[in-house]
């Protein structure tokens, strides 16, 4: 192949996302007539999950597929574009903003100075929420010890009355099992289920109300700028298809896992009513506004997102 690239993903090797991402790489290879060959390496293979932005910018990796929230410490705008807590109730709404609502242009404005070009966004779907006790609305969050990762999530939950605990992903299982924490923002329902989390976190909230992370697909900018137009088009179109593919496959996997969980009398799945989701969204919106003031880019994102949401009737 003329172009041989290594991409690092934020997915674990055994995650179903990982295979979907590899399938995307295979399709790019086929569509480009073997001119592009992408090797996808799992999280941590070359650099840590929160160091890929630097690595792609420096050309050590050629690209990444990752949750932009990991870079929230560089610019809060990454968290706002990466996982605007409470904003979307299904991946389609988010993808429409990215593709047709100005999200993509903003994202490129954000990452270009770091030496990256944003090709497009995918999503893992609306995450599920792990809980060891029944959670039926915002009031039940009061005093709840819960794990939340970096980004906006911690702050939103804190404002909703919960007590976020800063734990790495590798400690979630034992901490939930032993009761160090009562709940956790971890990942999608099917993966949680495969990991056996529902054996003790037997009151999951699904569909989740809190988190819909973007999967950002980016390439080193210098490489992008040097590509012929046909390859650029192939990459863009393939990522748009990749997003569809990923969302659909994960919805199928989630549906199966949910059916299995419903058949299990020990697991009670809670589905929040729209009124509770709206309450949580209201709290989250307060946090968006705070974050908007934290950097120029964050302010721009806030303006653009709220304008788009008003335009399509998601906000009054």
């Amino acid at each position: 192949a003329k172009y041989e690239w290594t991409f690092q993903t934020s997915a674990q090797a055994g995650d179903n996302f990982f295979k979907i991402e590899q399938a995307w790489a295979d399709r790019v290879n086929a569509m480009s007539g073997d001119r592009i060959e992408i090797e996808i390496l799992p999280v941590g293979a070359v650099v840590a999950h929160n160091e890929t932005l630097e690595a792609v910018g420096a050309g050590i990796l050629q690209g990444h597929l990752t949750d932009p929230s990991y870079f929230a410490g560089k610019d809060p705008a990454f968290a706002m574009l990466g996982n605007l807590v409470g904003a979307w109730s299904d991946p389609d709404q988010m993808l429409k903003f990215m593709n047709y609502g100005g999200g993509k242009e903003l994202f490129n404005e954000l990452v270009e100075p770091y030496g990256l070009h944003f090709i497009g966004a995918s999503a893992t779907g609306l995450e599920a929420f792990l809980s060891t006790k029944p959670l039926n609305g915002v009031d039940d969050l009061e005093g709840l010890k819960m794990r939340a990762p970096e980004g906006m999530v911690q702050e939103v939950f804190a404002r909703a009355g919960a007590a976020p605990v800063n734990l790495p992903g590798s400690e979630v299982y034992t901490s939930l099992e032993k009761g160090v924490i009562g709940a956790a923002d971890y990942t999608v329902f099917s993966t949680n289920h495969d990991l056996g989390m529902h054996e003790f976190a037997d009151n999951p909230v699904y569909p989740g109300f809190h988190s819909l992370p973007v999967v950002e697909v980016s390439l080193n900018k210098q490489i992008w700028d040097g590509l012929p137009e046909d390859l650029k088009a192939i990459l863009e179109v393939s990522v748009r298809d990749f997003a569809r593919d990923m969302v659909a496959r994960l919805e199928v996997a989630d549906a199966k896992a949910v059916a299995e969980a419903r058949a299990n009398p020990d697991i009670t799945i809670s589905d929040w009513p729209e009124s509770e989701r709206a309450k949580f969204r209201e709290i989250a919106r307060g946090v968006w506004k705070d974050w908007a003031g934290r950097s120029d880019m964050a302010g721009k994102v806030y303006e653009q997102v709220t304008a788009h949401m008003r335009g399509v009737g998601l906000l009054q």
């Binding site: 410490g73 100075p113 030496g115 939340a148 911690q154 800063n166």
Partner: peptide, 14 residues
């Protein structure tokens, strides 16, 4: 920062 200003990387947590 890429713009050349002093800007310390933060953890991105709450």
């Amino acid at each position: 920062s890429p713009a050349g200003e002093l800007s310390l990387d933060r953890s991105g947590s709450a």
